[in-house]
Amino acid sequence: MSVKLVVHPFLNDGKELQLEVNGSTVGECLKELIRLHPHIEDKLFDKKGKIRGYVEILVNSKSTYPEELSYPVKDGDVVNLIVFLSGG
């Protein structure tokens, strides 16, 4: 099982991050992401462990909201972590 993660530069100190992770849900994939890149956790999750309001997770270009962490993924899926940075 391999899922491609594309992480907004904002979440990774200004550098886009692409990596392959394993998991059957978005939540599992993100767990692996955090294990490999612990500094992302703070920007991704709020204090209650929920995905922050300014982050949206897409699977194959489709929004996973409101399921988010429980949203299922399968081999070959692409998961994008996008951020509502906007400046107005």
């Binding site: 907004h8 904002f10 897409l58 996008i82 509502f84 906007s86």
Partner: peptide, 10 residues
């Protein structure tokens, strides 16, 4: 403004 340009959309 294409504000979504900052979202890093696919």
């Amino acid at each position: 403004r294409p504000a979504i340009d900052l979202y890093h959309l696919p």
